[in-house]
Design a protein around this nucleic acid. Sequence first.
RNA 1: UGCGAGGUAGAGCAGAGGUAGCUCGUCGGGCUCAUAACCCGAAGGUCAGGGGUUCGAAUCCUCUCCUCGCUACCA
Length: 691
Amino acid sequence: MGKFNRYLITAALPYANGPVHIGHLAGCYIPADIYVRYLRAKKADVKFIGGTDEHGVPITIKAMKENVSPQDIVDKYHKIISDSFTDMGISFDIFSRTTNQVHHETAAAFFKKMYDDGLFEEKESEQFYDEKAKVFLADRYIVGTCPKCGNPGAYGDQCEKCGTSLSPDELINPRSTLSDATPVKKVTKHWYMPLQNYEPFLKEWLLEGHKEWKNNVYGQCKSWLDNGLQSRAMTRDSSWGVKVPLPDAEGKVLYVWFDAPIGYISATKELTPDWADYWCKDDTKLVHFIGKDNIVFHCVIFPAMLKAHGGFVLPENVPANEFLNIEGEKVSTSRNWAVWVHDYVKDFPDQQDVLRYVLCSTAPETKDNDFTWKDFQQRNNSELVDIFSNFVHRTMVLMHKLCGGKVPAFHQELKDEKDDALLANLLASRQKIEDSLENFRQREALAEVINVAREGNKYLQEKGPWLLAKTPELQAQHQKEIDNCLHLCLQLTANLAILINPFLPFTAKKICHMLKVVDRMLEWENAGSLKLVSVGYSLRPPEYLFTKIDDAKIKEQVDKLHAGLIKPTAPAATPAAAPKEEKAEIQYDDFAKLDLRVGTILSAEKVEKADKLLKLQVDIGTEKRTVVSGIAAHFKPEEIIGRQVTLVANLAPRKMRGIESQGMILMAEDATGKLVFVNPDAAVAPGSEVR
RNA sequence: UGCGAGGUAGAGCAGAGGUAGCUCGUCGGGCUCAUAACCCGAAGGUCAGGGGUUCGAAUCCUCUCCUCGCUACCA
C-alpha cells in the first residue's frame, strides 16, 4: 500500500429517477463496499463517498409527465435508493445528494474558478426548442417518421426500428415528445470546455502512467484520446440544476456531467471538515468505482476538470465493471426487466449476504455476465451452505459434543504435519486474498475465502474426531487429539470471519456472535492468528449461517420477473401512487357484501382507442363474464390467457369505451407502480369463493 | 459506420507458443460428526469460425461472425 496514507473511494452517483437493481450492485456498489471494508479492516484512513445525482433533463421530464415537481421525484428516489443501500450493507460514510446547498455552492465555485481562469469558450448555437413546453429538446426527445424505413416512432438521434442514426433535421414531421409541438430552432449560448487542450496531459497521465488499469478501461480511454478530443458544452438550458454563476446566464444550469462528479467533492465536504486532506494531498489514493457506461467521464472529462481547476488529486484507478444481464437478457428499466434491490430485501429478509455473495462471485469484472436465479440458488446451496456454513456448523456441533461446549486446549506436544499444513495454507490464502483484493480481482479473492473453508472441511475429515470418540473409553484415550483438532477448527472459523468480512459482513458478525468475540477481532491483521478464541471459553450453540433455498422460492422469482415484464409496445407504466393512507375501519357485514370469486382468463384483447384497457373473458364456473381492466401497460393479452384471477363478481356493471364491464380484477400495486395479479396460491376450481 | 472490450466443458473463470485446466453442477463408488462434507473414479471442449506463420497455435498474424459499451445532446 506504501505511498498512500489515506483513501478516498467513490461509487457512481445513481441517477434519482428510479430505484436501484442488482446490476447496479454488481457493477459498482458491492465492489466498492468490499474494497472499503477491506481497507477499514486494515485500519486504513478511508472515506467512502456516495449520493444521488439529482439534476438533468430526464428528471424534469419525468416530473412533467407525472405532474409533480422535480424535487418530488428526487426526494422519492433518494429515499428508495438510500434505503436499498443501507439494507444491503453498502457502508457509505456519507450518502449525499446533488440538490444539497453545499453541492450547489461547491459546483458553482468550481465552475466560477475555471471561468475566472479563462478556461471556457463561449459559443452560440442553434438548438431545437419546444415552444409549448418552453424547453430546449435533446435529440432523443424529438420523434418523427424515419426517412429510411418510414417508422413513425423514430427518435431524433436514432431510429430503433432500422438502426439508422439520425439527426432531428432528417425526421419527417418532427414533434416534441413532451407536448406534440413542432420543434423550432432557436439560438442559445453555452460555455464549452476545450478538452483538446488537455490531451497532452491526459495522454501522459493516463496512457503512460496507468497502464495497470483494467483492459476495458484503458482501451476505451486510449480510443478516445487517439481519436482526439473536442470542446464540450458544460452548461444547458434548464431551470433544474446548479445555476451558472454568471450575470448573463439566466435559465442556464451546469451540465449534469459537469456537476455530478463534483458531487463527490461536495459530499466529502459535508462529511468532514478535513475534506481537503482527501482531495488535495498527494498521498491520498482516489479510486472511482463505476459501471462501464461511465468510463469516459471518470477517466477523461473529470480528470481534465480537476486538472484545469487545479489543486486536486487525480484518480489512482477506475476499476469499471461491465454489465450484468438477467436470465440471458439485458437489464431494462423501462421494460421492468430487472431484479430490484428493494424487492429482493423484502423477498429474502436477512439474506443480504447471499446476494452479495452471488453478485461478487459472478461479478462482470472482465465481460458482461448473466445472473440467473438458478445459479443464485446453486451458489447458495452448494457453496455457502454445503461448504462454508457447513464447516462452521460441524465445528460448533462437534465442539459442543466432544469438548463440553468450551474452547479446548491445544496440546503442543501432539501437533502434527496436518496441523502445520492447515496454518501454512491459511497464511498463503490470506496473502492471495490480499493480492487479489488490491488488484481488484474480487471474484478470485472470494473464491479463495471459500477455499479456506474447503480446506477446513478436509482437515476435519482427515482428523475425524468423531471416530476417536466412538465410545467413552476411546474418547478418554484420545481427548487430547480431539481437543487439538477442534481447537484449530475453531481458530479457523474465527479466521473465516475475518476473511469473509469484506464480502459478507452480516455473516462475519454472526460468527463473532457464535464465538462470543468482539467485532474488533475482525481487523485484518488478525488473519492467520491461531489465538483468536481463548481456551476454556464457553461458546454459544451453533446456528446456521445460511440455509438452503428451495425450487419453489426460485420459481417464484422467475415468475415474478416475467410477470412484471412490460412489453415495448405498451406505453410506460402509470406513475406510482404514494403509499395510500389506511382506510377507515369497517364492520364484517361491510366486507361480507363483497362477492369475490376465482376465475380463469379465457381470452384477452386490447380495447380500441384506449392505452390501458384490456377486454377480458373470465370463466367463473357458473358463467363467463366480460371484464374491462386497466392493465394493458403491464401485460400483453396473449400472456395472461389461462391465468387465474380474483374477481369482484357483484360490482355494478359499468360501461367503459362502450363495453360493459361485469366485475373487477384484483391487482396489487407496488411503490414503483407495477401491477401483479392477486391469485390463489394454488389452482382452484373456477368460481371458488374468496372469503 | 468507426473505435474499445469480450467470445475456452451445462455455469463461473484460469491459461498469452509445447498439445487444455480450476471451482460449482452431472453420473458411479467409498465414508458419515454435519443443512452430504471429504475421498476415489467417470462423462462432458473441432478453445466462436475460416485462412496463414511455426516442428508445434487457445496463445502470434489475417479475414469473418456474435455480444456489450462508446461514437461527444440519453445522466
